[in-house]
């Protein structure tokens, strides 16, 4: 049993790049549309909510509301970009197009494929999150130099949510099941993690829940950085994101082995 599981783990540290490059080649063909699509949604939220609510809310944690919201949107858009890449695009490649099966007949292992897809999803998260941070910096809502600091955090956020989504994709019989993940897990996480308002607005026991949510840790790192303030507990937050990236990766690989290779 363990021997069979070991055989599907990533074969080495570089095989996944072939899978990543396949996705990059496909993406390149429609890159402009993809970037605009990824950016449009968070931007509309940012300006819609930021300006509209901003008038009523005033200042939050010493910043204008739109600047506060922008920091949340960076993390949230990384979460969405990464998740959607896995539950729609990678799921289609795995199930409908049988691409993974074709790859499994080569030198790649299942773990190589999963890793390539996860890193690719994180790449898209990186693009989406960084784009918003850049727009925020251009508009003066964020400190330019902070972008260098938040890039690794956005990437790690992307890895964590791609890994989690991979578990969901491994278990889902069809696309219909993804709506549960979106509405019951991701949307509440957006509110509980302080993306749109500070978690201190929530009752104490609800605030406690944020400790278990990867998005909260991502925001705790990104927000102070973008405001040009020192972040607290950096290692702790990075550690939690790292665990969310690694554990679900191994779980999803085991689940996918059962699904595809039994």
């Amino acid at each position: 049993m363990w021997e069979n599981y070991a055989a599907v783990l990533p074969a080495n540290g570089w095989n996944w790049i072939a899978v990543w490059r396949r996705n990059y080649l496909a993406w390149k063909k429609a890159a402009l549309v993809s970037i605009l699509g990824n950016l449009a949604d968070p931007m509309i939220y940012l300006f819609g909510l930021g300006t509209g609510l901003g008038f009523m809310v005033g200042r939050v944690e010493g910043m204008s509301y739109i600047a506060f919201l922008a920091t949340g949107m960076v993390a949230a858009s990384a979460m969405t970009a990464s998740t959607f890449e896995i539950i729609y695009a990678a799921f289609a490649r795995m199930r409908d197009q049988r691409s993974w099966e074709a790859i499994l007949y080569t030198k790649m292992t299942l773990g190589d494929i999963v890793l390539g897809e996860v890193v690719w999803a994180a790449t898209k998260a990186l693009l989406a999150g960084t784009a918003i941070a850049v727009v925020a910096a251009i508009l003066g809502y964020a400190v330019w130099s902070s972008i260098l600091h938040i890039v690794p955090v956005i990437a790690l956020t992307g890895i964590a949510f791609a890994s989690l989504a991979m578990v969901v994709a491994a278990l889902a019989p069809s696309y219909d099941y993804f709506i549960f993940y979106q509405t019951l897990i991701l949307t509440p996480m957006l509110f509980l993690s302080g993306a749109v308002y500070p978690v201190t607005q929530l009752p104490g026991n609800v605030q406690q829940m944020a400790t278990f949510l990867p998005l909260a840790h991502s925001i705790d790192l990104i927000r102070p950085a973008m405001f040009g303030r020192p972040a607290a507990d950096v290692i702790f937050h990075l550690g939690i994101l790292f665990i969310f990236g690694v554990l679900p990766f191994f779980v999803s690989t085991a689940l996918l082995r059962r699904r595809l290779m039994s």
Partner: peptide, 13 residues
């Protein structure tokens, strides 16, 4: 080299 029964060519390419 494996040729599976069902078409699994990459339609994007």
């Amino acid at each position: 080299g494996v040729v599976p029964q069902f078409d699994d060519l990459d339609q994007a390419f």
